[in-house]
Design a protein around this nucleic acid. Sequence first.
RNA 1: CGGGGAGUGGCGCAGCCUGGUUAGCGCGCCUGCCUUGGGAGCAGGAGGUCGUCGGUUCAAAUCCGAUCUCCCCGACCA
Length: 482
Amino acid sequence: MSEERFVTQITPKSEDFSRWYIDLIRRAELADYAPMKGMMVIRPYGYAIWENIQKLLDRRIKATGHVNAYFPVFIPESFLRKEMEHLKGFAPEVAWVTHGGDDELEERLAVRPTSEAIIGFMYSKWIKSWRDLPVLINQWANVVRWEKVTRPFLRTTEFLWQEGHTAHETYEEAQEETIRILEMYREFVETELAIPVIHGRKTDREKFAGALATYAIEALMSDGKALQMGTSHNLGQHFAQVFNIRFEDRHQNLQYVWQTSWGVSTRLIGALVMSHGDDSGLVFPPQVAPIQIIIVPISVGNWKETVLPVAKELKDSLERAGLRVFLDDRTEYTPGWKFSEWEMRGVPLRLEIGPRDVKNNQVIAVRRENKDKIALDLTGIEQKVKELLAEIQKAIYEKALAFQKENTREVSTYEEFKSLIEDKRGFIKAFWCGAEECEAKIKEETMATIRVIPMDQEKGQKGRCLYCQKEAETVAVFARSY
RNA sequence: CGGGGAGUGGCGCAGCCUGGUUAGCGCGCCUGCCUUGGGAGCAGGAGGUCGUCGGUUCAAAUCCGAUCUCCCCGACCA
């Protein structure tokens, strides 16, 4: 029954990818449109994923010495204006508060598009000595950017994220932090979200407004387009100079601090959908799945007396083992209906239990990602289920990795590049001379951009620039992107 | 922001061109019976100021204008 489609309200992925994406998000109740342009409601089933992401990432943020705090949602216009390069980057998408009640404000307030400015201001008050450094603060918050084109999770007017903001004594320390976080994001996304990424530096054209350098993790969605999943910026002393964040160093010299900032957002949820989902619906990796195990009792005969008590006991014991379990004992739906429904919602493992299974002291386990069925003995099932979930997590990652590898290609000629980007998309590795002009022309002619310049470049490699044919030493990864 | 398409019970649509009593259909929902190992069946039932505002008309889902929202393709964008 592998090719049968039980869920008919969702456009098949192969037919229309973006329609599939939107249908799925709404049908699976991850999110729904709000009545204001570009805004959405993250529904409980979707928010549960965010909570799992928060929990798993926050743990890592704290483990690397950071602490959480919260800064204001409003930022005075003059603060943003202090840093023109930064403001220019954001100006078109800033939402402004002009009135408090009926009274016009003396100064407009920006609804934060990001918090460098307000945090920079506060840091200037808090940091006086090298003994105050480093400052390692993270905040979980919402931000607003008035985007023209919006899509649920991928780009919405308001979104949730975490933003880390650190201040250091030296450039080297700040750079180390920038890379440490990039690596933390890479490990987090690959381990917990089961999405393989490439990581590297952004070109000047693509970097954060006001940063010295921006690094990013990028993943390939299953339609062959790239999605930026997290960024880490070395801000240098730019904001320190603007907001006068100075400290007296170990040799009694007054110096500007070196800063970083970094973030990931609810876009990660969109990435989960687009990386792992299939024609039957969502596929969630167990680590972040809102429900890891769905128990479906097979309702035949006097199942309420025979099957249901065993199912309840199974649920309790799995919950005691620390698993997220839901027992679907609704009588108004048939087992078959429930199978399809929970597959659509991406639950990684289904346990079916009927009278025959009760008799045999077993359950039928069905994996979401490959639909394999196996019988599991009820005795000691907690351990077996945990192992199975770990296997599923790994299998989902391996599948995505295989896809990424298949769709990462190297080219040497521009003709080859153009035809690949048109038919197959995916990541394309090619030499680039470093000129912004070549980058711009390629984008104009093919809609592909440089996603990152990978960290792991071979030393001393030489080739010719994809566009201008001049000698080049840098390989860049190109793709069409979201 | 430019070009194109679309808004009709919860969802998917028909009706609109050519205005005319009661706005249909499928799915879903409710009640009952019967069923339940891959989205069961039968019977009965509820639910819509046709996105919103205004105009034309004796009469507007239908014609005209404005506006909001969504989708697609571009431009823009950490």
